[in-house]
Design a protein around this nucleic acid. Structure first.
Lengths: 355, 355
DNA sequence: CTGTTAGCGCATTCAC
DNA sequence: GTGAATGCGCTAACAG
């Protein structure tokens, strides 16, 4: 009798998957009970729980997430949209997102956006695709129109390193970051301080270059140092472009004695240009970057550290929370930044904690 | 009459999602027909197709992928497992994977593995999790035991930049790559050629360092140059570690006149060490890397280019194909590599096509 | 060509 | 406590 039942199930197991029905049959219970032990429902006797567990074990049963999702009407997956994930800043955040999601029962499906067209397509289609319980946008500020679309789709959206008044967001204070970096140079006695960055406005609506610029201006103003337009350069993101900008700066009649770069990648480009001129860092030109990517410590680059990994983690936390019960007010999480003093501004006088 | 129907549906639309039933009702057809137009079945008259399309439009209907997946018993998602996705080589492949998958109807769910524990957990759980139609492993060779587990789970697995006899794989010829790089240096007249790399064996079972080493040895042998154990250094992956290795090499009584690094990242570390000694590249020490990452062109680094993006694309193609009908024999796709000659070996004699 | 029916595998009411 | 029935939204096979 028992053997026949097992045989029956065995045959099925080989061709089809083994389902909750098979487990129920083997354990001699109803599928409801099996479902209960699966979900750790307290209202099931220890005896039957063991029977069911044994059956699950014997059949090597694994519940179908798809069926669960349909039944619960939740996808248990979140979509993550990130631009240019070759760049350390985005990768760093993505690492945090991945790590946080691995801890949860949610799947992470990834979209890499390298054109505004693809971004717009993602913004348009993903929210209404019924595939996600929530969306995480990295460094991609949506327009009001986009946000309206999200609302209509009824899907929680959380921003990391981007801002919109109507959406929860995890950010750092870039104005402050720019201020701190510039102030540091001023305190070292520099007055001819250049700023190199991405274009202040771009089709992607990245805001970091602009905000850091504002901080830069603010520090200058505060110190009574007049802003010189020729000290502000911008170009497409990249080491090479930054090197060219730095070259132009160094070719000025009155070249800067310090350069603040809006990213470490760009600072490294500037570093190349400075060295190629035979100039010394920091004696001839001091250098401050932004981000504190992995190589920066090794290169001795003074920089403004921002917590990439943590921002990804936080973003996920906020999103999962919003999925469970959407907050009345959008949340704002501001993560701390920190000036890391290294050789590129201090020479050998680097404080021990930043070595 | 019609208004009542629409009102009814409208109410439902606001609280529940709108389903295929709503569309069918509005269009005055059966759900089968709706399903047919959804899937572009040819056997539906143009007239009714238009009616259905209109209803879909009016209701702003979007089919539920979850329901489709359950019905079809396919998840339409593939799992991608990659180690250390902060490294350019893996990111590059991932970009290709993402791009290829965006073109398809498949979702990409991502796993980043930075410990062997997580790798093993992924290998163990993901195949039987019922969440994927296929698995793509990047640079992570499974054991025979792992493969047996994959087979039992009945899930197609494709390897990118890794090898197992029983699995389809997309690879390059690393032995040849190591050979070509070394040969290039030999042809330039070098006899004291060092090789720096990751450890030849690691818990992740990465094979590239080993294979490139074999090619290095082969080129040496072929030229009758005796192998010198002190010219072979290895350390954990990283720019910094590579710099240290290069320093040790340059400190040798008879330092090498050329260094072949198993990755561009490591070559850049070596570059630092060479410059810091006041030595010139390539006059004093010639340098060859591997990968051709983005900055390499800009740094003038001679290197062995491998097609990262394409390997990701190919991997996806092979996997999707395997999902449709698993091949009798595992496929082997070998992508071409190319020596890119730049200033780090040729000085100013760089061929125009590699500038 | 098209409507109806029966699953897909699970969670969740309800009765018992 | 537990089993049976119902629904999640869709596809596919079967009639008509």
């Amino acid at each position: 009798m028992v053997y026949w039942k097992r045989f029956q199930i065995l045959v099925r197991e080989m061709f089809m998957g083994v389902t909750i029905y098979d487990v129920a049959k083997l354990a001699g219970v109803g599928i409801g009970t099996v479902s209960r032990v699966l979900n750790n429902s307290p209202q099931v006797s220890e005896a039957t729980r063991q029977k069911v567990l044994a059956a699950i074990e014997e059949l090597n049963y694994h519940p179908s997430p798809i069926a669960k999702r349909l039944s619960l009407r939740r996808t248990f997956t979140i979509g993550v949209i990130t631009p240019f994930f070759t760049r350390p800043a985005f990768i760093g955040r993505l690492r945090g997102v991945e790590a946080a999601l691995t801890e949860s029962e949610y799947d992470l499906v990834l979209y890499n956006v390298e054109t505004t067209d693809k971004r717009d397509a993602c913004f348009r289609e993903l929210p209404i695709s019924q595939r996600f319980d929530g969306l995480l946008l990295i460094a991609l500020p949506p327009t009001d129109e986009d946000v309206a679309h999200f609302r209509q789709a009824g899907i929680p959206v959380v921003l990391v390193d981007a801002y919109h008044p109507a959406l929860s967001h995890v950010v750092i204070d870039d104005v402050k970051g720019g201020y701190v970096a510039t102030k540091h140079l001023i305190e070292l006695g520099h007055a001819r301080i250049a700023y190199i960055s991405d274009p202040l406005e771009s089709p992607f609506r990245f805001t970091s270059s602009l905000h850091r610029y504002q901080g830069y201006r603010q520090a200058l103003d505060e110190a009574g140092i007049p802003f010189r337009a020729e000290y502000h350069c911008w170009a497409e993101h990249g080491e090479e472009q930054a090197r060219d900008m730095a070259r132009r700066l160094l070719d000025l009649d009155e070249p800067p004695t310090a350069i603040f770069a809006a990213s470490d990648t760009q600072a490294i480009g500037a570093m190349e240009a400075i060295r190629e001129r035979g100039l010394r860092i920091p004696q001839d030109v001091a250098l401050v970057g932004y981000d504190d990517i992995e190589v920066s410590r090794y290169l001795g680059l003074t920089t403004v550290r921002q917590p990439f990994f943590e921002s990804g983690v936080k973003g996920v936390e906020v999103l999962l929370q919003a999925i469970d019960h959407s907050p009345d007010e959008p949340l704002r999480i501001e993560l701390p930044i920190e000036l890391i003093r290294r050789r590129s501004t201090l020479g050998d006088a680097v404080p021990p904690e930043h070595r």
